[in-house]
């Protein structure tokens, strides 16, 4: 055994020496392992973020549309107009509403997956959650446009059930209503919840899986009814999962532009404003300043989520 190992060593002295060299310098191993991801993170990811922040301090020559590379705060003055503040408010409210609705819908589903589903049923449920992610998100949003259109499937279906009155009443509601589902904030909300739901279900399910059954039994032994056990044991232990899911749904909604582009009443959302300022108006400084806003909002959100322990369930 030793002889063979020795033979192999003699055959590959260079490799062997390299091995010894590395073995004797643990910091080198660390550098080799961590270097590439760290370089990626810092240079590509944070570097582009830094460039974004710098760009936001430039400004645009109004007529020629050329970016003037001087550091000023004038772009931020343009950013904080009432119309733009409304865009932030609209986007943040939508993101919050979508996160809450997604959590409410996802929890029972995740609970069933974690507690009751048989091994086989669980696999099927996983598939059901992940299946929509296999097709293009753009196609799904466009499909929803047709489903929610005034002469679309939903209207037809409700008409067949003689429930047009309900739809009309809902659409007459201020703010969330509109001429048709596809032109209202309600329709946009439905599509947002649909596209981001899987990102909520999976972390909640992971968190619920980790709640020890013994704790629930102990709670029952101590006389708590199921409702009380749920409120005082299950929910607090699963809360990090809900928060982790909400980080996804909140940030994804905050930055999305495809849904507001295709549905709703053309009112701008942050992602759309960024798109129109970069893609079309070429007001890169203002677009960059716009992007800083969701970064700030997410920053606060993440700090809050960390306080509540969300990162333990990611």
């Amino acid at each position: 055994m030793q002889a063979t190992a020795l033979g192999a060593r003699l055959q590959r002295p260079a490799l062997h020496r390299l091995g010894t060299f590395i073995y004797l310098r643990p910091w080198l191993v660390l550098a080799l392992l961590l270097g590439p991801p760290l370089l990626w993170m810092v240079v590509i990811y944070l570097g582009s973020l830094a460039s974004l922040v710098v760009q936001s301090f430039y400004f645009l020559d109004p007529f020629t549309g050329q970016v003037i590379r001087k550091l000023t705060l004038s772009t931020y003055a343009d950013l904080l107009t009432p119309a733009n503040l409304e865009i932030f408010q609209r986007t943040a409210l939508m993101a919050a509403a979508v996160s809450i609705a997604a959590a409410i819908l996802a929890f029972p589903w995740a609970y069933y997956m974690a507690r009751y589903a048989s091994r086989r049923a669980k696999a099927a449920l996983y598939l059901a959650v992940l299946l929509p992610l296999w097709s293009s998100y753009l196609v799904r949003v466009y499909a929803w446009r047709l489903i929610l259109a005034k002469e679309g499937i939903v209207t037809w279906f409700l008409g067949a059930l003689h429930l047009e009155g309900v739809l009309d009443a809902v659409l007459r509601l201020p703010v969330i209503g509109g001429p048709s589902l596809s032109v209202s904030f309600l329709g946009m909300f439905i599509v947002f919840v649909y596209v981001w739901l899987p990102y909520m279900i999976l972390p909640i399910q992971a968190a619920l899986e980790r709640v020890p059954k013994s704790l629930l039994e102990a709670s029952g032994d101590l006389g708590a009814r199921p409702g009380r056990t749920f409120r005082h044991v299950t929910l607090p232990l699963a809360l990090p999962g809900v928060l982790a899911g909400s980080i996804f749904t909140f940030s994804l909604t905050l930055g999305d532009f495809v849904v507001p582009y295709s549905l709703g009443n053309s009112s701008y959302f942050i992602g759309q404003a960024v798109l129109s300022f970069t893609g079309t108006a070429f007001n890169i400084p203002l677009a960059a300043a716009f992007t800083v806003v969701p970064m700030v909002i997410m920053g606060f959100y993440l700090i809050g989520a960390r306080e509540l322990g969300a990162f333990e369930a990611l």
């Binding site: 645009l60 109004p62 007529f63 343009d78 107009t81 009432p82 119309a83 409304e86 865009i87 609209r90 053309s266 009112s267 701008y268 404003a273 129109s276 108006a281 007001n283």
Partner: peptide, 17 residues
């Protein structure tokens, strides 16, 4: 009124302001 004001004001109008 120069063009850049047209841009910001149109966004505001579309947003319902």
């Amino acid at each position: 009124v120069p063009y850049h004001e047209w841009v910001t004001n149109m966004i505001a109008v579309i947003g319902g302001r």
